[in-house]
């Protein structure tokens, strides 16, 4: 019983973090058609900004939303500086991999210079622990498990129930037609990046309240999010969400039965198998589009 509870709980928790990361990657891919390798750095930066604000004496309830908003600005600026100038060039996918990787590396080392290598931690969303089904869990983790689906549902509502969300979905499907109905395509690209960066920043804040933070804290979640989007298919945002939870459960089960040491190898096994059997991802439809 406690084994099942542990896997279930671990899966939900990891799945939540992966979903927040993977959705941002998918959002940027579907709208702009590029892969953002500085996504992990967004996560780190969100956590560090939140930490800095708390350090300056702001209560967490104020600091966290500010950090998320600042991350939206960071995402927008990054898009404007290393992605937008390249749009329309040949080999854009590969070029943007390089520019976002470079920007990520600069930001990571910038964070190292500004904040130093010593591990930090930010306050938990809710302090304290409890026991569910014989497994001891922190209230912080439970808060994340509850809040994440709400945020993802809000994102879904935004994309499917608002005119701006409709515009984002439209530009993802046909950029020229988007221009011809009068959409501000440049601003929508910026918006996609801003939303992705905010979600990653929030994931960083979640993680920083649970583990120690370091300037490279984003690279492992980015790798996992990569596995998630390959596994679930990157051409929609619902695919990666389901995939994130599946991968979360898989990881939790693996580390329970085979140990942490084997888990990454097994995850990459899933990645390779997916690429061999169904390279478009298990939840993917044939076309690109947000839904």
């Amino acid at each position: 019983m406690s084994a099942l509870a542990e896997i279930l709980f671990g899966g939900l928790f990891q799945g939540s973090l992966y979903a927040m990361m993977a959705v941002g990657l998918a959002l940027v891919w579907t709208t702009i058609g590029v892969f953002n390798f500085s996504h992990g750095v967004f996560m780190m930066l969100g956590a560090y900004i939140a930490w800095q604000l708390v350090e300056l004496g702001l209560p967490a309830a104020v600091a966290f939303p500010i950090a998320v908003v600042v991350m939206a600005g960071v995402g927008w600026i990054l898009q404007a500086s290393v992605v937008r100038p390249l749009i329309g060039r040949p080999n854009i996918v590969l070029v943007v991999v390089i520019t976002t990787l470079a920007a990520g590396s600069l930001i990571e080392n910038g964070a190292l210079t500004v904040w130093g290598p010593r591990s930090k931690q930010i306050p938990a969303l809710i302090a304290g622990n409890t026991t569910i089904g014989g497994v001891g869990v922190s209230l912080h983790q439970i808060a994340i498990i509850v809040i994440t689906p709400l945020i993802l549902a809000a994102l879904w509502m935004f994309l499917n129930r608002t005119r701006l969300g409709l515009a984002l979905r439209a530009v993802a499907q046909n950029e020229d037609a988007g221009h011809l109905v009068g959409l501000n395509v440049t601003a929508l690209y910026g918006l996609a990046f801003a939303i992705a960066a905010s979600l990653a920043g929030l994931a960083g804040i979640f993680m920083g309240g649970y583990r120690f933070m370091s300037p490279v804290m984003g690279s492992d979640p980015l790798l996992k999010a990569l596995i998630v989007v390959v596994f679930g298919g990157i051409s929609s945002i619902s695919g990666p969400i389901f995939a994130a939870y599946l991968i979360g459960f898989f990881e939790a089960a693996c580390s329970y039965y085979f140990g942490l040491y084997w888990t990454p190898a097994l995850l990459f096994g899933v990645l390779i198998l997916t690429l061999m059997v169904r390279p478009e991802g298990i939840f993917a439809s044939r076309s690109r589009g947000l839904a």
């Binding site: 005119r163 409709l166 515009a167 979905r169 439209a170 499907q173 046909n174 076309s287 589009g289 839904a291």
Partner: peptide, 15 residues
Amino acid sequence: FPDLSIADCMALGAY
């Protein structure tokens, strides 16, 4: 927009 509904397309037209 292949994956939008007719209703969505009309809403976009009035953007």
